[in-house]
């Protein structure tokens, strides 16, 4: 048993050093680890205001369907006879996943008690979320609003989130921007309760080679152009496309989730739209 553990730790360390030695990548550029956080912050500060508008433009609105499916798949909400839950939405800046989770819990489970923490490393992105929530029933002066809190946090550390405290950890189109993904995964493992679920929605690899060709042509040529035309920012969108391409494929990422200590059901992921995006889930076993 010990050997097995050592082997899996070694494997994850190898993967880790391969992907993230003292340098890391920022899109296709290789940069020092400390620098990536700053660069990513720059990108998202640039795009914060137009983030959801651009998502609509780039994906023809499909990102909304993905997000709806993501939330209905994880089916958040207090169960009959159970306790209220704690939700943690990481890289949740603009708050659209958090809002969907709260609405789903209310509509499907009559849950008006569970708590939501929205966390993002980027204060500008988080500011967008605060602004958006002010226009909903979860605004800061309402009773419902008390259930929601916003925290500027680095997902690799989450120093304000205690161990074993959360029931659900969601991260949607965020994890590929993290400097050290294995570290973020083990932090997710730390903050979740036993039985708590890690759920990630992220761009992934198109499996059909023909469609992959079409998709890569589209993403490398059209998306930076859209960024240029619609919001006057070519470079940030160039980064987005490159970072999508660099992100590990479905199987590799599922394995990284298992290496962080999560159990997966079967393969542990579901492809959306031919694998343009994928939903990965893992559950924290009893420790």
């Amino acid at each position: 048993m010990i050997f097995k553990q050592i082997r899996s730790v070694n494997a994850s360390a190898r993967l880790h050093s391969k992907l993230y030695s003292s340098t890391t990548h920022f899109g296709y550029r290789t940069v020092a680890q400390e620098e990536k956080e700053k660069l990513v912050r720059g990108v998202f500060s640039n795009v914060a205001e137009n983030y959801d508008y651009m998502n609509d433009a780039m994906s023809a609105g499909i990102h909304r369907l993905w997000k709806d499916h993501f939330v209905s798949k994880i089916d958040p909400g207090r169960r009959p006879g159970g306790n209220e839950l704690s939700f943690l939405d990481i890289a949740g800046g603009t708050g659209d996943i958090a809002y969907r989770i709260l609405e789903h819990a209310a509509k499907e489970h009559g849950d008006f008690e569970s708590k939501m923490i929205i966390s993002d490393i980027n204060p500008e992105m988080l500011g967008e979320g605060v602004k958006r929530f002010e226009n909903t029933k979860y605004h800061s002066k309402s009773r419902q609003g008390e259930r929601v809190s916003f925290k500027v946090q680095n997902a690799e550390v989450l120093d304000e989130i205690p161990d074993n405290s959360q029931d659900l950890y969601t991260v949607s189109f965020g994890i590929r921007n993290f400097t050290d993904i294995p570290k973020a995964l083990s932090t997710a493992h730390r903050v979740l309760k036993p039985g708590g679920v890690f759920a990630c929605l992220e761009f992934s690899k198109v499996t059909n080679p023909l469609l992959a060709q079409v998709y890569s042509t589209y993403s490398f040529n059209v998306i930076p152009l859209l960024g240029q035309v619609l919001v006057g920012d070519h470079d940030s969108y160039q980064y987005l496309v490159e970072s999508i391409d660099r992100f590990p494929d479905q199987e590799t990422f599922a394995q990284m989730i298992r290496d962080a200590g999560f159990a997966t059901n079967g393969a542990g992921y579901e492809n959306l739209t031919f694998g343009v995006a994928a939903i990965h889930t893992g559950v924290k076993p009893i420790v």
């Binding site: 089916d75 839950l85 029931d167 659900l168 036993p194 039985g195 708590g196």
Partner: peptide, 21 residues
């Protein structure tokens, strides 16, 4: 599935790893 996860000492949310519940 919630009674099962609860009796194992797991969070109620654990049931959501089963896509068809």
């Amino acid at each position: 599935l919630a009674p099962a996860t609860r009796s194992l000492g797991l969070s109620d949310q654990a049931a959501s790893i089963f896509p068809n519940g």
